[in-house]
Amino acid sequence: MKIAFYGSSLLSAYWNGAATYYRGMLRALSAKGYDITFYEPDVYDRQKNRDIDPPGWCKVVVYKGTVQTLKEVAAHAVEADIVVKASGVGFEDDLLLEEVLRACRPGALKIFWDVDAPATLAELRAAPEHPLRRALQGIDLVLTYGGGDPVVHAYRELGASECIPIYNALDPETHHPVAPNIRFRGDLGFLGNRLPDREARVEHFFLEPATRTPLQRFLLGGSGWGDKSMPANVSYVGHVGTGDHNAFNVTPKAVLNISRESMAENGFSPATRVFEAAGAGACLITDYWEGIELFLEPNTEVLVARDGQDVADHLAALTPERAQTIGKAALDRVLREHTYTHRAEEADRIFRDRVRSSMEAAE
């Protein structure tokens, strides 16, 4: 089956946290025989900051950030059996959704794939006339990359016929154990861009523990933190390309996951970085959110912190030997249950069930 996928960017992770999710999911679906074309706009300097070349498992169409070009690429939806419009494309999202749905041929499976469901739902609740609210009536399926039952119930209340989470996962081809890199040496590393609904949590879970433990070495990676006031024991390394993520994860004694506020409040929303760190065999400390145990077992495969003091306490008690044991257990778990091959099997089953039901209804 042919998939037309309209998303933010497959080729660039620059200010685009969904990139590794897209790559893992689409690579695994391609391996199951899907013919995929990914359409992404040339905006936010992403094409100037590519971190992969166009892959062999997916055709990529980069289009200019103009309304006319948007309409032209949206028209190609007619060629696909499955048409996906992702959230957060970044250029005229509402218009793109409208044009893509208009172009779909009769019988095509129409999907809205939400890669930031808590934020999208908050936007929909605040805007009763939001275009996506109206479009849900004509969309066959909403997929999300997290959120659990709270997101499923919320989307159904808004009129979605069906909503199913397809969670983040690990792509073992891109995220795996590597040799340490002296550039990332330290006791605790955190990798994440500076975002409005994350900054206060970074202060609480990362910068405050650094202040409390001046003899520990902290490492901060990600875009946007250059003018942030930091304790002397925090080293800022700037943007870390995806090619260096494995080394960033395995070199410090532990790495930290800090969810955005909306993700933490909703729960059941493991960030991509959770699986990337586990896939590299890193010892991960994560802020608490409901549903963690569905993915990694607390105290055995991951350390959980409810506040900054917990982070400091975990670091104080963590020996290199225990860190290695936790990292190995996490790696074993994600390889066993949480790879994109697992997720693609689930998505493939969903797609085929929906297509089969549509064919039976048409007979």
Rank of each mutant, 00 (worst) to 15 (best):
78 V>Q: 05
101 L>A: 02
138 G>S: 10
326 I>L: 06
76 H>E: 02
199 E>C: 12
305 A>Y: 14
218 F>L: 04
300 T>A: 00
221 G>T: 09
324 Q>Y: 01
325 T>M: 11
21 Y>S: 06
215 L>G: 07
90 G>K: 13
117 A>P: 15
109 L>S: 03
309 Q>M: 12
234 V>T: 11
316 A>S: 11
15 W>A: 11
99 E>P: 10
72 E>D: 07
315 L>N: 06
334 V>R: 02
113 W>E: 01
177 P>Y: 05
29 L>N: 05
24 G>N: 10
285 I>C: 05
99 E>D: 07
185 R>N: 04
283 C>A: 05
65 G>L: 03
245 H>W: 03
252 P>R: 08
108 A>S: 15
303 L>P: 11
57 W>D: 06
66 T>N: 01
266 N>E: 03
235 S>T: 07
242 T>P: 07
322 R>Y: 05
279 G>Y: 02
308 G>F: 13
146 G>M: 03
36 I>G: 06
266 N>R: 13
271 A>K: 04
35 D>T: 05
157 E>H: 08
163 C>N: 00
291 G>A: 13
323 A>W: 12
3 I>P: 14
162 E>Y: 02
286 T>V: 10
217 R>D: 01
325 T>V: 12
156 R>I: 00
216 Q>K: 09
310 D>A: 15
215 L>W: 07
337 E>R: 10
253 K>W: 01
335 L>G: 04
63 Y>T: 09
198 R>C: 01
330 A>R: 11
77 A>C: 11
242 T>G: 03
56 G>S: 15
353 D>C: 10
161 S>F: 01
243 G>N: 08
56 G>M: 02
101 L>P: 03
177 P>K: 04
323 A>Q: 09
81 D>F: 08
276 E>S: 12
190 F>V: 13
136 L>E: 03
149 D>G: 04
272 T>S: 06
292 I>R: 01
220 L>H: 12
328 K>W: 09
202 V>W: 00
174 T>V: 09
294 L>Y: 12
326 I>W: 12
6 Y>S: 09
214 P>I: 06
51 D>R: 14
134 R>E: 12
322 R>W: 07
141 L>S: 04
67 V>Q: 05
43 V>L: 13
241 G>R: 08
128 P>M: 02
202 V>T: 07
61 V>D: 00
290 E>F: 01
19 A>T: 14
67 V>L: 09
206 F>D: 08
303 L>K: 13
183 R>G: 01
28 A>E: 04
224 G>W: 02
23 R>F: 04
72 E>W: 13
354 R>K: 15
16 N>W: 10
47 Q>P: 07
336 R>T: 15
261 E>H: 13
56 G>W: 05
81 D>E: 11
124 L>K: 12
356 R>N: 07
212 R>D: 00
179 A>H: 11
26 L>A: 08
206 F>Y: 03
304 V>S: 02
259 S>P: 09
170 L>E: 09
363 E>A: 11
9 S>Y: 08
108 A>E: 03
22 Y>A: 04
65 G>C: 03
287 D>N: 12
272 T>K: 04
362 A>Q: 14
269 S>F: 12
